[in-house]
């Protein structure tokens, strides 16, 4: 698919084409403004691509749906509702015939999950940036969607909280076999969470240039993954992309691929990175 905002302008991105398997965790990394949020909005059904379309479970995505839970970049909480009511609003939308008690219990479970126990009655304005973001996450989790779309969900969190919630996310996702598409700027976070990492070149006319398969063992944790030599190979590959290649795909020094190059930098480091350089 591609997206063009103004008629005369160059497309923000083009030739974007990828699949997500059921139960898979996919991260997308790219510089600010390359069109990551736009892609996510198209996947969510909130925006439409200028060309191309999105297919989920054999059906074209025609609009937003409860099947896809979204955590927005700017948390998007309703400021007139308390934490509890914000989450309850989502739960009531998903299961309109649930009793009040059932809604409250389920909501409380979600609040406990993201570690916000005790601030249920506060309004979003009385929360820190990270707490607001956690409410947004709880709200998306609460409706048990088939797929989660996360737009930099941990962007506003301090390192400590971030780690805790990342672990929670890993837990929930592994337990529920949740399918996730997540935008992040954090290379380590992508390596920890993702099965596959999409690398987006700079805009305009951005493309998904490379697709890195995460070959680290599935049971990796924040604490042990950096002991694996693969970790540094993957990490270097991603950082190299961000500091150099993302720009060179745009200037034309590197040919724009029609399909993202599928790479496993963790396994055979030298040959693959050499191909690109």
């Amino acid at each position: 698919m591609s997206k063009t905002y103004a008629k005369a302008a160059a497309p923000v991105f083009e030739n974007v084409n990828f699949n997500i398997q059921k139960g898979e965790f996919v991260c997308i990394i790219g510089h600010s403004g390359c069109g990551k949020t736009t892609i996510l909005n198209v996947l969510a059904g909130l925006d439409i691509a200028s060309t191309g379309h999105v297919i989920m479970d054999g059906r074209e995505v025609a609009g937003p749906s409860l099947q896809r839970g979204v955590v927005f970049q700017g948390h998007a909480l309703m400021p007139w509702l308390s934490v509890e009511r914000n989450i309850a609003f989502a739960i009531e939308s998903r299961w309109p015939d649930w009793s009040r008690k059932k809604v409250r219990d389920h909501g409380q479970q979600m609040i406990d999950l993201v570690g916000l126990t005790g601030v249920e009655q506060r309004k979003p304005a009385e929360l820190s940036g990270g707490m607001k973001q956690r409410v947004g996450i709880a709200r998306a989790f609460a409706i048990q969607p088939k797929m989660l779309l996360l737009d930099e969900p941990f962007g506003a969190l301090d390192a400590l909280t971030r780690g805790t919630i990342q672990d929670e996310l890993v837990n929930i996702v592994r337990r529920t076999q949740q399918t996730v598409f997540m935008i992040t700027h954090d290379v380590d976070e992508a390596i920890l969470l993702a099965d596959r990492i999409l690398l987006m070149s700079n805009g305009p006319r951005a493309v998904i240039a490379e697709m890195v398969i995460n070959t680290l063992p599935a049971d990796r944790t924040r604490h042990n993954m950096h002991h694996d030599p693969q970790f540094y190979r993957i990490r270097n590959h991603l950082v190299d992309f961000l500091v150099q290649r993302s720009r060179r795909y745009t200037t034309g020094e590197l040919a724009r691929p029609q399909q993202p190059l599928e790479l496993r930098p963790g396994l055979n480091p030298d040959s693959e990175t050499n191909v690109i350089h």
Binding site: G45, G63, P64, S65, L66, V70, G74, A76, S93
Partner: peptide
């Protein structure tokens, strides 16, 4: 817009 988008992703009916 973001509040409306939240409502859209939650498939909230027009009156609600």
């Amino acid at each position: 817009r973001e509040w409306l988008n939240v409502a859209r992703t939650l498939e909230v009916k027009p009156l609600r």
